[in-house]
Nucleic acid binder design. Structure first.
Lengths: 145, 145
DNA sequence: TATATCCCCACTGGAACACTCGGCATTCGG
DNA sequence: CCGAATGCCGAGTGTTCCAGTGGGGATATA
């Protein structure tokens, strides 16, 4: 399960993508529109700003805009900076690798091997799906169910 | 990230699969062999027993054995009963569906749509990989990286 | 009967989650 | 230049979850 915070972050970003081009949205606007607690959203957007995904203007008529184009922001990127590693095991994480303390040899660890396949499959979706893809309802050829 | 508990459960089960056929392993044996805290392992195995995955014998020379054949126990099954739903959003879970309180329409939710693809990809691996597969080091044709 | 094993319940310390509060800094309209 | 509206920032809080630990009871074997 992804965190509520990550869900809020993605919804806020989707709202920004859908906004008329070059116009900005205020925290309170996004908060109302998406039913996200205002103060919580505030710190989420701040975090996205620190990571260079959005920018803001203060004061009257302030608000937020995307800093990077929507087709350059992936779900994986957002998820990693809000929730941390995507990999289901620390020994499979790109951004926060840590060997399992109790695992003697990663090469022969049966569990790791299985979850490695999970990780690849997950990354394949999250690192190649952008906000632009999401709002375009672009359906990639689905894998067999 | 899967929980430590789930990791322990899978390691314990792998140990049982690898044990000489029809022979049982004691908690203390698995605990030592796999470096799992004994009392914690105790309640994990108990949980696996309640769900019909292993069975036990008490008293001197007691221990645990697999109840179902190794090729009928999937990673998904074990993970769900220890960690709960696999899906990254409650509105995508098979075993614990709950609609997102703030989402007006699931059909048009951009976030849900993306994570649905993640869910399918994940389930595809976890629900079709068994303990037998894991110990056999059976390499299925890998998806492109 | 003594001992080794599994069974069961309760508890706990720490971390993470999902917020909330209060106040400061900046910008714009008038 | 003032005041109101906005974003910025640090701290705090209640709840839940995680990862165990402890103490005893039931059961089977030597």
């Amino acid at each position: 399960m992804i965190s509520q915070k990550a869900k809020y972050a993605l919804r806020a970003l989707v709202a920004l993508v859908k906004a008329p081009p070059e116009s900005s949205l205020m925290i309170s606007e996004i908060s109302r529109q998406q039913a996200i607690p205002k103060k919580f959203l505030e710190q989420i957007l701040l975090e996205l700003k620190r990571h260079g995904i959005v920018m803001s203007r203060r004061g009257r008529l302030g608000g937020y805009v995307l800093l990077k184009p929507a087709d350059r922001i992936t779900f994986g990127e957002v998820l990693r900076l809000i929730d941390g590693p995507i990999a289901p095991l620390p020994c499979l994480s790109k951004i926060a690798y840590r060997r399992c303390s109790d695992c003697s040899d990663e090469g022969t660890c049966e569990i790791r091997h299985v979850f490695q396949r999970v990780t690849f499959a997950t990354r394949d979706v999250l690192d190649h799906t952008t906000l632009a893809d999401a709002v375009k309802h672009k359906r990639l050829p689905e894998l067999a169910d």
